[in-house]
Structure formats: structure tokens, C-alpha cells
């Protein structure tokens, strides 16, 4: 009996002879394929993401079917969809003595935050990009300033805005006071919380939308601007009718990235509210999931919420990646 490894080694060392051998040339050695020869480069990273991303996602799905709660290790012998029933309809699950509320509140907040944040970011980014594109002086300085907040972490941004929103000393309230309004409690006000979070996130990420749109504007041939001018179109009309429709690709890619950013707003809320409890009116799925798992010890229920969040992200990203693939842009 020959050890398969020895066979493999021999084939590896002899593969040149095998090729000149005539009969086996067309099939070649499997080790001679480009996919195999380049495997030392792409395979280790691929195994790493295979284990950490796809393995972990699969494991998470299985965990969401268990009753894993509190300390100890998960029991994989009895799998069911109870956690999803609880997530959608609420009730008292078998692993708890307490009633668990469904996810609708945080799901709704997630969608509201996602839509308002992305739409305002895109609109503001587009306006800024058009203004920066007017052959202005100090263009680099303006661009650098607008993108600056994006280099900060969510945690730092939250600390800055916690200060800005402060009732007594915050700049927002000082400004409101100057125009005769206020002072208003913002951070703990159930009616304003989510808007305050969205506003701070818009401050942080609208510069990103600007950069993407600016690249899109610069890619449009100058002749399109000139043609619209010759036709006597006004500036507003030119942008609305001729230029903005050509920014579809830029819009879609910025939108996808911003949407995913908003799904990740956990860090911001954790820092803003100093822990796992942003309160019901600012609770999003990302915070609910981490709170259930890491604060309440409801690991399996947290996993189920994570699966729902994952499906939401998938619903946004899959069409995007597919269209990129179709257009050969991957």
C-alpha cells in the first residue's frame, strides 16, 4: 500500500515528466492548474473567512434553534423554531420565566433610522458634491473637512454629540436658546432620541456620500454639461435632467454602504447611552440583539435576532452584488 501523501508528492515532483509523457498532457496534473498553483495565496485567507464568517453564520443559525440561555454550554439535541415565534409574536419561551417582547419595536426603529439616515446622507452628499464641483478654490481643504468626522469612531462621535445635545451646556440648546426655543431635553427625550441619533450619524457619514458623488460627477464627460448649456438649460434643470440621472451607480453603491453602516450603529448607541439600554424609542435590532445575548444571557434568542438582521442585510446586499456581477464590475 502506498501512502496517498507519497503519491501526491511524487506527482508534484514529477508533474513536468507527466506532461511530456504525451497521453496525459491534455488532462494534465491537477497540481498544474492555475487555481492550485495560486492556492497558497488565496486558500489561507479563504479558509480564514470561511471559518470566521461563513462557519460562524452557520453556527449562529444552529444556535438560534437551541434554548441556550445563561451560563454553561448550548444543548444541540433539541432544535426548534421557538425563538423565532417569540421574536415575531412575543410570549414566554420555555427557557425563561419572564415574558419576552417581540422585535417589532426595534425592527421598526431600525428601518426608520436606516431610511432617514441614508436618504438625508445621500441628499446632503449630493448637494455638497455639486457645490464642491463648481471649480472652487481650496477644494481639497473643504473636502478634507467634510470627510473628517468619518475618521472618528462611533464611540467618539457619540461623546461629542452627547455634549452638543446637553440641556444646560450643549451647543444645540445654546443655539435654540438664541432663537428663543428651548432648552430641550434631547438625548433622553423619547420623541427626539432617534432623530438625534440619526442627525449625529448624518454628521459623521454625509462626507462619505459626498466623496462617492464627487467621483461620479467627475466621471461624467464635460460634453454633457456643455450640451445642456448650449440647449439653454438652467443650472438646476441641467443637474436635475441631465446630470443626476447619470449618478445612479454612485447612488446605489453609496446607499448600500450607508444602509449597512446604519445596521452597525450599535457602537454609537452603546456609547451614547452608556450601556445596553438605549430605551425603547431608540432601540434598534443591533442593540436588542447584543443586549439579549450579552446582558440578559439569552444567547439563543440573541442569535435568532441576529439571523433576522442578517437576512435584512442579505436582502439589501444580494441584489447589489448580483447586479455588480452582471455588469462585470466585481
Amino acid at each position: 500500500m502506498r501512502n496517498p501523501l507519497t503519491v501526491l508528492k511524487r506527482r508534484l515532483s514529477e508533474h513536468r515528466e507527466v506532461r511530456t509523457d504525451g497521453g496525459t498532457t491534455s488532462a494534465g496534473s491537477i497540481l498544474d492548474r492555475d487555481s492550485v498553483r495560486s492556492a497558497p495565496f488565496w486558500l489561507p485567507p479563504f479558509l480564514l473567512i470561511g471559518l470566521f464568517i461563513y462557519g460562524a453564520i452557520a453556527w449562529n443559525i444552529v444556535l438560534s434553534l437551541t434554548d441556550f440561555q445563561g451560563l454553561g454550554t448550548p444543548d444541540y439535541s433539541a432544535l426548534d423554531f421557538e425563538n423565532y415565534v417569540v421574536a415575531f409574536f412575543g410570549g414566554t419561551p420555555s427557557w425563561s420565566e419572564l415574558t419576552v417582547s417581540p422585535i417589532w419595536n426595534s425592527a421598526w426603529n431600525t428601518v426608520v433610522l436606516m431610511v432617514s439616515f441614508s436618504v438625508v446622507c445621500l441628499a446632503l452628499g449630493l448637494v455638497l458634491a455639486i457645490l464642491v464641483d463648481q471649480e472652487i478654490r481650496f477644494e481639497n481643504t473643504f473636502r478634507t473637512i467634510y470627510l473628517l468626522p468619518m475618521s472618528l469612531s462611533f464611540v467618539v462621535t457619540a461623546k461629542f454629540w452627547l455634549y452638543m445635545y446637553n440641556v444646560e451646556t450643549g451647543l444645540v440648546n445654546l443655539f435654540l436658546g438664541a432663537v428663543g426655543v428651548g432648552p430641550i431635553e434631547i438625548v433622553q427625550n423619547p420623541d427626539l432620541k432617534l432623530a438625534a441619533v440619526a442627525f449625529a450619524l448624518i454628521w459623521q457619514f454625509s462626507g462619505y456620500a459626498m466623496i462617492v458623488y464627487l467621483a461620479g460627477l467627475r466621471a461624467i464627460p464635460t460634453s454633457h454639461f456643455e450640451a445642456a448649456r448650449v440647449d439653454g438649460a438652467s443650472t438646476v434643470r441641467m443637474y436635475w435632467r441631465v446630470i443626476i440621472p447619470q449618478l445612479r451607480t454612485a447612488t446605489v453603491s453609496a446607499l448600500v454602504v450607508l444602509t449597512v453602516f446604519s445596521l452597525k450603529a450599535f457602537d454609537f448607541l452603546f456609547s451614547m447611552y452608556g450601556g445596553y439600554q438605549p430605551g425603547p424609542s431608540a432601540d434598534i435590532l443591533a442593540t436588542r440583539m447584543v443586549r439579549e445575548a450579552y446582558s440578559n444571557g439569552n444567547w439563543a434568542y440573541g442569535s435568532a435576532i441576529a439571523v433576522i438582521l442578517f437576512i435584512m442585510a442579505l436582502a439589501i446586499v444580494t441584489p447589489y452584488i448580483y447586479s455588480q456581477y452582471k455588469r462585470g464590475e466585481l
Binding site: 470566521f52 464568517i53 462557519g55 460562524a56 453564520i57 453556527w59 449562529n60 444556535l63 448600500v256 449597512v260 445596521l263 452597525k264 450599535f266 435590532l285 443591533a286 440583539m289 447584543v290 445575548a293 450579552y294 444567547w299 440573541g302 442569535s303 435576532i305 441576529a306 439571523v307 438582521l309 442578517f310 435584512m312 442585510a313 439589501i316 446586499v317
Partner: peptide
């Protein structure tokens, strides 16, 4: 584009 919540408990 994976929301990291989807891998936290397994991690």
C-alpha cells in the same frame, strides 16, 4: 456587508 451581530455569539 455582514452585520457582525450575526457572528457574535459563535465568536
Amino acid at each position: 456587508f455582514i452585520p457582525y451581530q450575526a457572528v457574535l455569539v459563535p465568536l
